[in-house]
Design a protein around this nucleic acid. Structure first.
Lengths: 113, 113
DNA sequence: ATAAGTAGAGTAGCATTGCTACGCATGAAG
DNA sequence: CTTCATGCGTAGCAATGCTACTCTACTTAT
């Protein structure tokens, strides 16, 4: 996946990966890598700020936990987050349909003779 | 179309709309509006800088023309632009497939019992 | 006439957002 | 004891679309 292409669609993806169960940042990165067959492999400098952003806007809720001497910050969707995810999904459907249509090779407009 | 969602995919769209025939900026805006049923309605502050960018990077070539006392800057694809358009199309296919998959509601991973 | 609307190009500066390149800590494996 | 995986974090950069504006010229109402 080329960098930067994600722009604007990362939040939806993060919400989606948190939908079935709460996860911590590192696990989110792994889940994305697995589910996209390595196509989406985000650096920590992308993932953590994005999670903080989602937390700040109230779409996820975070809490610390410690597992095997290592601390983790576990994120879970809020109800606002679940709603936002649905919105993202429908936005994505519209958006991707529009872009797909526009990228389609277009025949020359026929001017009436 | 929500603003900002386009991020990173505008160039490909512009190249696509220029593929069948050269157009000037204003005509590009109209073509996009028509072809997307009003969904993609870009302000001039988006379109002109983007065209300049494409010109600067050699993907389009521009020339002035005057029609009915009004000057127009007409853009056409270069061969590099045609190649870039193909790349954009395949990038888009990969990207949209990946995002669609990731946004899909995911079942909880089954842990072996 | 003149005001409003359409056609047409442009810029400055902002906001968002993902990325690079770091720092720091703990535990396991060689 | 060094390297690797796990795990969180930030500062600052770069790209890019948008808002809000300027300027010109023709066209159509009032």
């Amino acid at each position: 996946m080329r960098a930067e292409t994600l722009k604007g669609h990362l939040d939806g993806i993060l919400l989606a990966v948190l939908e079935p169960e709460p996860r911590h940042g590192y696990a989110i990165m792994e889940a994305l890598r697995d589910r996209s067959a390595g196509q989406v492999d985000l650096p920590t400098g992308t993932i953590y700020p994005a999670l903080h952003r989602l937390e700040r806007t109230g779409l996820v809720r975070a809490s610390w936990s410690t597992v095997g001497g290592r601390r983790r910050r576990v994120y879970e969707l809020t109800s606002a987050g679940r709603r936002a995810l649905e919105t993202e999904r429908s936005t994505w459907r519209d958006f991707s349909a529009a872009v797909t249509a526009l990228l389609q090779p277009m025949p020359l407009a026929v001017s009436p003779q």
